[in-house]
Design a protein around this nucleic acid. Structure first.
Lengths: 330, 330
DNA sequence: ATTTAGGTTGTAATCGACTACATGTTTTTT
DNA sequence: AAAAAACATGTAGTCGATTACAACCTAAAT
């Protein structure tokens, strides 16, 4: 195993100089720098990360704590985070919480043990409700979930605005009786409900909301119940991609024709939403960008810990497809 | 910062005893063990991982190297790997290669630097073609991709069998002119082509294969070209979920009706395959189980490095849906 | 010519845990 | 009862880097 003293010997300098070159300190002369780099290359020296981390108290590692990496939103975020981290020679450690506060606490403890430089976190509702930055030894950037007034960096969709515009779109196309199926245990779901509510109230229409647990089968059951109503509502909105999937399954199971029998709209522009006839109208989130912004924000926070907290609120894009087409007068 | 000597003092023992208790060595008496554990709890002591790793030369970390975590197959595998690792107090480090041999080499180098206990790898075609276990300082388990005769642990689908059965299913339903759209740059795609070929040859039918790059838009273009043919083939098989998506997009864009105009079948039982009318017939892979088996295999390999290599070949499940319904005689 | 400042370099201490070895104690064997 | 074996524990060295500090050299300032 070649180590730093071998490099030092080869380059004819002390270990301190080698270390200075490798950590990028600007206190080495150009000639020594070049000789060290040459020796490193000749010997194919790789610094021992454990030793480096022990002494320097830093790990150059980013933690990513999400409910479930299989959620396409988080998958995309993780890819963005990994891309940026990789380009900066940093590592990513992943942890799934399943929305379980205990597992979430374990994950954050794990991150503390790893002495991560920072964490990108999608918090459970419970953690979000009493989030305090001082509780952790590392900076945190929240993604997807955030509540007004919390002192934390965050990257999220403008949920209120997105749901408001989606609702306005349906209303403009003549749909009046709208059922809003949303994730009741999620801050995001609730904020989207508020945006929907605001649009409905503005048009003096009643709000029909169905809160579900954030699982596909739950959403399907809720949607099936809605579809048993008589008369059928004129439209249904799903507050997330997962719920939209459940709704689509229910519609297919009951042979309900979109948009003739009922109009549909939802969140998350997943690949399949354009495949389901006649194409599902959705709010697209800039997921990859959100992940990228989250880690950039985190890296800035690590560099300058005392600047004021920032929230990056991103705008969703309304993608109109056949599922929300104008209502035919009957 | 509370450290091991604080615990030792509190428990009235030496640091060696504390270390022995914490690393689970069976050479401590029960009384001291209990007193150490009590002291650990009272002080909320957390061992410094960097120090531990430096001295012990082990990291208790697993590397996961895949082409793209956004591929649902790998997403699911990563979730399984993370679950098992988490339950054993191990970490997972993720790296995406984009099928680029250079990035792949960087990822594996990164894993070496991290002194991972082992790696779960989905190799590029190039790496697979001259894979040698001795090239790395850690054990490797291959997932999804494997070639006969390679001396390596692996977990994969029985691709030949799955494609064979899928083809037999289409043939049994009366489809004769079948186009097989497959990922030409993937070992998996090629193996599936061989299975398809075997079934066609057995029935003395010609093989029509279209190799594409493993990207959705490439598959769509290829499928569009196929759909321009006159007469239209009677069925199309997609050798992966990604390609199936491209095919489905092409069919929708051309308003081709499944299965009246053309029958469809493919791989990967993704949530949306049952949503596309009239439901797409697919081979389902036991993805989560494959991930679980992969890390279990890896942990066994770490425990006993010298046992013979093992390949776990799993059987795909044929899920028949409307897209491959029996051909109407004309 | 002497002092001062600024820039380079090297020596040695240090990070915090694991573990080889030595030592002491108890149990078993002869 | 003595010797050997087995077990339990402690002391101190070690893992391989970073970095505080001191020492040195050169150039600028007095």
């Amino acid at each position: 195993m070649v180590q730093i003293k071998d490099v030092a010997k080869r380059a004819g300098v002390s270990v301190a100089s080698v270390s200075r070159v490798l950590t990028g300190l600007p206190v080495v002369s150009e000639p020594t720098r070049l000789r060290v780099l040459a020796a490193v290359k000749e010997l194919d020296y790789r610094p021992d990360l454990a030793a480096r981390r022990l002494r320097s108290r830093r790990s150059d590692t980013i933690g990513l704590v999400v409910s479930d990496i299989r959620n396409p939103f988080f998958t995309e975020v993780s890819r963005a985070v990994e891309d940026v981290a990789f380009s900066r020679q940093m590592r990513v450690i992943l942890c799934n919480t399943d929305e379980d506060p205990n597992k979430e606490a374990s994950c954050l403890e794990l991150m503390r043990d790893e002495k991560v430089s920072g964490v990108i976190l999608s918090p459970s509702l419970k953690l979000l409700s009493h989030f305090t930055r001082a509780d952790y030894g590392f900076p945190i950037v929240l993604v997807d979930r955030y509540e007004r007034g919390i002192e934390a960096d965050a990257v999220l969709l403008d949920n209120f605005d997105a749901a408001y515009r989606l609702t306005e779109h349906l209303l403009a196309n003549g749909h009046r009786q709208i059922v809003f199926v949303y994730g009741a245990e999620s801050a995001t779901g609730r904020q989207r409900l508020e945006g929907h509510r605001a649009a409905m109230v503005k048009h003096q229409l009643p709000v029909q909301a169905e809160g579900v647990k954030p699982m596909e089968d739950q959403a399907r059951e809720a949607a099936l119940a809605v579809l048993k109503r008589s008369p059928l509502p004129q439209a249904v909105i799903a507050s997330s991609g997962l719920i939209l999937l459940g709704v689509a399954e229910a519609l297919r199971a009951t042979r309900t024709v979109i948009p003739r029998d009922i109009a549909v709209a939802g969140f998350d522009n997943l690949p399949w939403t354009q495949l389901v006839e006649p194409g599902l109208t959705v709010i697209a989130q800039p997921t990859y960008d959100m992940g990228r912004e989250a880690i950039e924000l985190l890296l800035q926070r690590i560099a300058t810990p005392d600047k004021a907290m920032r929230q990056l609120v991103m705008r969703g894009e309304l993608i109109e497809r056949g599922s929300s087409a104008a209502r035919q007068h009957t």
